[in-house]
Design a protein around this nucleic acid. Structure first.
Length: 272
DNA sequence: CTTACCGCCTGTCGGC
DNA sequence: TGCCGACAGGCGGTAA
């Protein structure tokens, strides 16, 4: 389940393989993933063109060519793995991209919640045009978050996971950063004080960056052999640990459901 | 406008 | 042991 750190880890792994490399060929094996794949458009725009940059926005990867970007999202279960064949060799391989000289990237996604789309440079794409602040971007500030949350009655947990507010924060990192910040998940987002936002943003960044660091240390394994190896390498304090003792105070971890998603937290440590 | 809920998917896991 | 239902979850779409 690729979260922001996994996508960023993947981006860094792909950098030397795709930047300034010509895309020699593409094979698609499905008409659609989450959305229809604009196969013809992508092929016309991308084949025999050089990828100028690879950029991450939220959990989206954008492979930029001159006229626009090929956009990848890995959904819940997606992986991109380098192999040495243009033929699919495992189930759920939906696309294969050939970069010069001999890099074959296999897009694999069993649940097909991901997508492969084309984003014209001139227009952008609604999927990314409406995204909120990047948690790791320097110009994302506690003050801006507080301002955006003003008057919000919805919970801070749902605010963190709202991609129009903060881009790319999934369930795991929402839970973990709230724990680290000592903030209760049910607190209305509009009720956080500036100091709370400062602690929360700091906690979110530390959690994300720690995971990216961990991904970096195991990059080769993660990328070249088994896409799953990069995941869940950070120490999770609360996520998935219902009834297990809180690492700080030993109180059993609670689980509740918010906006249809499990929230894990320590009712003793998260009192703000 | 804000907020909550639905549904797309398949692999995994618990219960019988 | 084997089957089967419940569950997991990102996120756009839509209803309230």
């Amino acid at each position: 389940m690729p979260e922001l750190p996994e996508v960023e880890t993947l981006r860094r792994a792909l950098l030397p393989l795709v930047e300034n490399k010509r895309i020699l060929g593409i094979r698609f094996f499905r008409k659609d993933l989450r959305f229809p794949i604009p196969q013809d458009q992508i092929k016309v725009q991308v084949i025999n063109k050089k990828t100028q940059r690879i950029v991450r926005r939220a959990k989206y990867l954008l492979l930029q060519v001159e006229t626009g970007s090929m956009l990848w999202h890995l959904g819940m279960s997606g992986r991109v793995i380098q192999k040495n064949t243009m033929d699919p060799d495992e189930p759920h391989t939906h696309a294969i991209f050939h970069f010069e000289p001999d890099t074959f990237l296999h897009y694999i996604d069993p649940r097909r919640f991901g997508c492969i789309l084309w984003v014209p440079a001139s227009e952008g794409h609604p999927l990314i045009n409406h995204l909120g602040l990047e948690p790791l971007a320097p110009d994302t500030t506690a003050r801006a978050l507080k301002q955006n949350a003003r008057g919000r009655k919805a919970s801070i947990k749902s605010f963190l996971m709202d991609s129009r507010q903060l881009a790319g924060v999934g369930n795991i990192y929402a839970c973990e950063s709230l724990f680290k910040a000592g903030i209760g998940p049910k607190k209305p987002a509009g009720n956080l004080r500036l100091k709370d936002w400062e602690i929360l943003l700091q906690s979110l960044r530390e959690t994300l960056e720690k995971s990216i660091q961990a991904g970096g240390t195991t990059l080769r394994d993660f990328f070249n052999t088994d896409g799953k190896k990069g995941y869940y390498i950070i120490q999770l304090n609360v996520y998935g640990r219902e009834n297990q003792p809180c690492p700080l105070c030993k109180t059993p971890i609670s689980r509740i459901v918010q906006i249809g998603r499990s929230t894990f937290f320590c009712k003793s440590c998260q009192r703000i």
